[in-house]
Nucleic acid binder design. Structure first.
Lengths: 184, 184
DNA sequence: ATGACTATACCGACTGGTCGGTATAGTCAA
DNA sequence: TTGACTATACCGACCAGTCGGTATAGTCAT
């Protein structure tokens, strides 16, 4: 079953979020996924491959959500609006899946920067999309970076904003994605 | 000697950056600092305390740099300009120290979110400074988040921007810190 | 001024536990 | 009969933390 791999990744993400990153062990993942240790290794020959799979899942998830958003929003700035929704997910139970995947991302980054390859590989495409989203490229990059900043602070649990500020920031970032946005 | 603690922290940061986070062991730190394992434990009773010390050092470093900048720039937006310089350090060999400390921060975050306490504890003050820096608070938060985003992507080695884009983004963020900034 | 004692800083062999990974024999559904 | 596992036992590297000991400089009562 191809599906089991996804189940293992979901289980790993869940373990990372509930038990903490330092307890993301193969045994814990196996238990969470309802498999034996051998079963996990049957699908992922090493922990490294599992971590890579988690990062890949996050990338896929993000790109899928952006693509879905673009289907209904083909105007200038649409890629960025999709990206904001995908990574900040203010409006859905997607919060669960993306939040968990994200912790996996952090785990990977901490263990070994090379595990971020699936993410790094997509950066040229993302940069290209951002630079050609129909608005000023520098502003576009800043919007993306601010979304990243909010996202990573969320993952790490650093309280940079309260709920009200957060809502306002996300709203403003949305406004900034429109070509005719004027500061002030 | 009070100094040895700082030397150990510097050594730990250096190990994290050169050997990778997963090789940040007490043995490696000891060797880097020119001490024995026991010597390290004499100053930091546990690895956790060492990690906390590293995060604290990053916070201190950031606040010191912001403070230094503010001494020469008391105008509106000055805190943010100091923060940008402190965390993005485009112009100094401070790049070394802050970059290394930052990797320690990431290590701490990955091992256990509670190790970020020294950083989390300062967020209320930072938020207050940002909200009262003399410019629109929402824009101010976005500037800070974008700086964070660029910073963390740097630490993780995710290639979000090329050198030219990076320079332009930092320049733009600087412009945005002024009260009379207008988009376009 | 000498011997007893204390504080500080540090050494490094060792222990104990964790965890990724391996091995093997067997189950069971399609 | 092959693919997808289960169950369990085990290996061995790695690493945080321990602990008995060493070195040195200073204190202080006699």
């Amino acid at each position: 079953m191809k599906n089991t791999k996804a189940r293992i990744i979901a289980a790993a993400a869940n373990v990372a979020v509930t038990k903490g990153v330092q307890n993301l062990t193969i045994d814990a993942v196996a238990e969470e996924a309802g498999l034996s240790k051998g079963g996990v290794f049957y699908h992922f020959a090493s922990k490294e491959l599992l971590l890579l799979g988690m990062v890949q899942a996050l990338v896929d998830h993000t790109e899928t959500m952006v693509q879905a958003h673009r289907a209904a929003d083909t105007e200038a700035g649409g890629w960025l609006r999709g990206f904001i929704r995908a990574s900040l997910a203010e409006d859905a139970e997607d919060v669960g899946s993306i939040g968990q995947l994200s912790v996996g991302f952090l785990t990977a980054a901490a263990n070994d920067a090379s595990l971020l390859a699936p993410m790094n590989d997509r950066q040229p495409q993302w940069r290209d999309a951002i630079n050609h989203d129909g608005i000023d490229p520098v502003r576009a990059q800043i919007i993306r970076l601010a979304a990243d900043g909010l996202w990573i602070n969320d993952i790490m649990g650093v309280p940079v904003l309260d709920a009200e500020e957060r809502a306002k920031v996300i709203e403003r970032l949305g406004h900034m994605t429109w070509p005719d946005y004027k500061e002030g």
